[in-house]
Design a protein around this nucleic acid. Sequence first.
DNA 1: TTGAAAGCGCTAACAA
DNA 2: TTGTTAGCGCTTTCAA
Lengths: 340, 340
Amino acid sequence: MAVTRSDVARAAGVSPAVVSYVLNNGPRPVAIGTRERVLAAIEQLGYRPNAIASALRGGSTQTIGLLTPNRSNPFYGALAEAIERSLTEQGYLTLTASTYGNRSSEERLLRTFVDRKADGLIITSGVSLSGAPLADVEQPVLVLEERVGNTLSTVSMDDERDAAGAVDHLQVHGHDLIGCIVGPPYVSTDGLRLAGWRDQQHRTGRPAGDGLVAFADAGEEGGYQAAGLLLSEHGRPWAVYGRRPTALFVASDVQAFGALHACWELGLRVPDDVAVVSVGGTRAARFTIPPLTTMRQDVEYLARIACARLLQDIREPGTPPTHVRLTGNLVVGRTCGCTP
Amino acid sequence: MAVTRSDVARAAGVSPAVVSYVLNNGPRPVAIGTRERVLAAIEQLGYRPNAIASALRGGSTQTIGLLTPNRSNPFYGALAEAIERSLTEQGYLTLTASTYGNRSSEERLLRTFVDRKADGLIITSGVSLSGAPLADVEQPVLVLEERVGNTLSTVSMDDERDAAGAVDHLQVHGHDLIGCIVGPPYVSTDGLRLAGWRDQQHRTGRPAGDGLVAFADAGEEGGYQAAGLLLSEHGRPWAVYGRRPTALFVASDVQAFGALHACWELGLRVPDDVAVVSVGGTRAARFTIPPLTTMRQDVEYLARIACARLLQDIREPGTPPTHVRLTGNLVVGRTCGCTP
DNA sequence: TTGAAAGCGCTAACAA
DNA sequence: TTGTTAGCGCTTTCAA
């Protein structure tokens, strides 16, 4: 069996409580000589405190539960990496789980986090969890997505505005007929980006009909399929407009990778035949051929303030919820028509 | 405060022990009527067992610690996703942490996992942790990398052979002067892939000198830089061979993405001017322009047998360590010279 | 079939 | 400044 605190106490000739005081630097002072003896005993026995016992006794678990749609999408990968890093720096460990868009998984995993007494929870965008199951959660929850009537703190990207900005940039390049590739609209991020495209087109008197929208799965394959649909001569959903879209707004980088591939396969030059702009700004977007113009959402910054907010909520519970909304910035590549 | 088992017992008019028997289906039988009452009380009070207390008392934490180099590389992303999914299916939660190649982080994080009483640990390739700190770990550890003299179970890809296979394919296409882009050789995966390239070149009487090797950071940028170095007219490390390499072996997909980008920038056509083959087989590799030929390492399968092995070790401790080594299979794209 | 109770390793209040 | 001790919520043995 492992070395316990009592073993250390015995070896150091003190009571178990003193060992705790030394380890936790309090809540009471320990004579310098005693402290030395305790530390020596700890060292010698190779004692490591049992985090489970400590957590049970009343302390915290120093654990945060992180719920993301998946782990393999570079956007969520980068986001989760940034969050995990922030938390690690603050001495927290991250329990991660992926929902794969499955509502019942989401609830189950959330419950599990709660049962494990995670000190706090972070729920990223793309997790379709409605507010209901979150209501009876005792620990602080931070949602990386804006929701109507949300009573929890949120830190989110302004997806609608970011999408509109991306579309605007295509319009500046003279495009009117701009297709839209987007994930299922019931995922709030995708719904907002779709709305951003539609509003921006409407507002500027440009077409925004269903023939220009292709719903796609989240991966490269989804973007590939959708671009094929919007651009090829077969389906011709754009027939009502009399011509093919000259540009594509793509709701995520990864889908844009697939879309670029589709263009290449179809022999369409980017940006000459089809311009492409997406939302995301992942690192990989700088290395596509040609490099992708994308509305960059700064996940590092997002993660940093999100974690700061959550840990603040943990330290001082009862703070009223805040809602922070961040705006992306356009990273100009070579898929939009800009020349270097 | 939350509802505890005693509350349930009181509400159901039974002793706390009986509640446990019902919840755990044992270790002793409960009269059917009593069981009903207990379940009703649980339902009505919304009781949820405290996993921390359960873990302390002697059960397990149902938690596995997963150590990866990072979260944003698609290879590790997919691997971690597959592992996490396998574990979730088996009722385990995953504690994740990234090492970023930092040796002291590795040790610290490992300790933390141990202190948290994770039921088992998985350490992926690319984590440079030597065997030493793992020796005194009580719980089962599974390493996704082969190591000399390792007393732990391993499930690994045969990186050396996979690399050699990739290089062989380039040779089949008639290439002799094949450059090698690889990460730092002290990372065992990279060391093995470098060795695979070198041996395959040597064995077939082809050049394998230092002028053909470029060490690169792990990301796209690393591959981009390295390819620039190996292919441009500036550095000319290949000068000793009198001509530029006609092909590149790249140790990872992500680096290959960068390398393809460099080729594009330099105006080199792939595969006509430069052929490229990498090791990895990530999903994204199918969508590069042109699609990447890559030695696919099946992370899904790797994860599945790794998790099965680890959980087996947890259920029946003391099983002698096993070493499984998997071989990749070439996914032919359009960067090697094969025609569809 | 069930109740009572010991104890997992720790924190912190209470005594000394 | 330090020792003693009561739990945290649970599992499981021992008695009934």
